[in-house]
Design a protein around this nucleic acid. Structure first.
Lengths: 273, 273
DNA sequence: ACCTGAACACCGTTCAAGT
DNA sequence: ACCTGAACACCGTTCAAGT
């Protein structure tokens, strides 16, 4: 599955143009050197010329890779350095510290939305816009199930920047689209919150079911013979087959439809102010 | 700072009666000694008799306290030991390790539902049941905003044990109530998943907005003058007032109503098998 | 039975020193 | 300009030893 697709810095298979490092992409402002190095180092870097050219983007890519593989707990400055063929201390030249590294990981993964050919910043129909956006975010969550809890729980930059979108550009796009289609100020914001909440709940449940974890319990502990002794829970054991089924895809589809219907009804009501 | 406030085990100011340690509260099965010590040590323990009686419950209570105060990252075996007036290594007699400690923290907080006089395991009306249950979970999330991300993201014991309920007993109760009211197998399970997803999304968004964090960035960094430069985002800056408002309570109420309506419609449709 | 001291392997991070 | 070595303070965890 998760091939070594990130290795040759071909991290955005779809969008060759703006992608992550677009000039106006919101970047972490606290590392001034990125501004210069980004445009210069990255597109050049012929493989073979400078073998171990370290830079912020390569570091973040490797960090995502490590979390995808081994989980968040295994992402260590020292391990990340080793993975990149470098001492851990070299990373501090490109990243202020581990916390900021995790912020960068979240930003990197969320920014994959820009590379998704099925998601657009603008669309004639707001319902199609939300459909595509929702499915795009879902694809990201499923592609990085061990990163998603981080996306969901990292403290937002501002209190109104919600997970899982977490991006000023997407917020701007979201609000613009809906207001262009007739949503009032209050209703556009309400829609943004309802949409975020829906995505967050559904996708966190889905990746959590798929065995995502924050931290490594990975190992099957043979000492504990399946802690689920259902003897005392008759309803539960009767429904176990039903409970074990994974209907996530259908449920997502249906809940999204319900949400869109609900939002559509907002359009008929006058703004409440 | 970290006073000895937990020392006299007066950890539940509000609920003096059943609270966390009801006799039949589900306890972590992997430490057999709890079964004995619980009933014996805790209710007895006249303050002054055995000053530093350590046990699993006191440890978990102190851990919750520390996370509530200082955040997850500050919860360290060594700090927790110090908080309890004991060397860190003493904790390993009552708890297998840090991971299991965190599981216990989640269980402890979720079990506060049993002490909530407004939430019942059974109710004549399934809608009232879900209303009370939902509000109970919300109260817990707001009471422990720094624990809730842990509740939301810890890997579940079984793939069908979802956050945020995370308890076989509540699952059993949930399914029993709905089936008693006419929900089919498939519909009861679908309702359980929809309800979990709604609670998870809404509450995680709410506590995340309230500045919960997993890890300590707590400090206001004066070097970074508010990273929100909205110059390039006209819609966003126009709606900033709207976005800054906290309508969480109303939104919760309304979304819960919508969910209940949606579930009610399930009752009219024949089970799809 | 319960706790401690000392030790081990591993963290994140700083900083002077290398090239 | 970029990376390394050594060091510091702090982790989780083990285990023999104390009482």
């Amino acid at each position: 599955m998760r091939r070594s697709s990130a290795d040759e810095s071909t991290r955005d298979p779809a969008a060759a143009e703006p992608a992550v490092g677009g000039a106006d992409a919101p970047v972490d402002p606290d590392t001034p050197e990125t501004r210069g190095s980004r445009a210069a180092v990255l597109p050049a870097a012929a493989p073979g010329t400078a073998r171990n050219a370290l830079d912020r983007r390569r570091i973040l890519g490797a960090a995502v890779e490590l979390i995808d593989q081994d989980g968040l707990r295994q992402l260590t400055m020292r391990r990340l350095g080793a993975h990149l063929g470098v001492e851990a201390m070299a990373l501090y030249h490109w990243v202020p510290g581990r916390e900021s590294l995790l912020d960068g990981v979240v930003e990197t993964v969320v920014d994959e939305l820009y590379g998704d050919p099925d998601v657009h910043l603008s669309s004639p129909d707001w319902q199609e816009y939300l459909q595509r956006l929702g499915h795009g975010v879902r694809r990201i969550a499923l592609a990085h199930p061990k990163v998603f809890p981080l996306i969901a729980t990292r403290p937002p930059a501002a209190p109104w920047v919600h997970p899982p979108l977490r991006s000023l550009r997407w917020m701007e796009s979201f609000l613009t689209e809906l207001q262009r289609c007739g949503f009032s100020d209050a209703h556009a914001v309400a829609a943004y919150r309802a949409f975020s909440s829906f995505l967050l709940g559904h996708l966190l449940l889905e990746v959590s079911t798929h065995g995502a974890d924050i931290g490594p319990i990975e190992q099957e502990d043979p000492g504990r013979p399946d802690p689920t002794d259902l003897a005392e829970y008759p309803r539960l054991s009767a429904l176990q087959a039903e409970l074990s089924q994974d209907r996530s895809a259908e449920e997502f589809e249906e809940a999204l439809e319900v949400l869109l219907d609900r939002l559509e009804r907002l359009l008929d009501h006058p703004p409440h102010r």
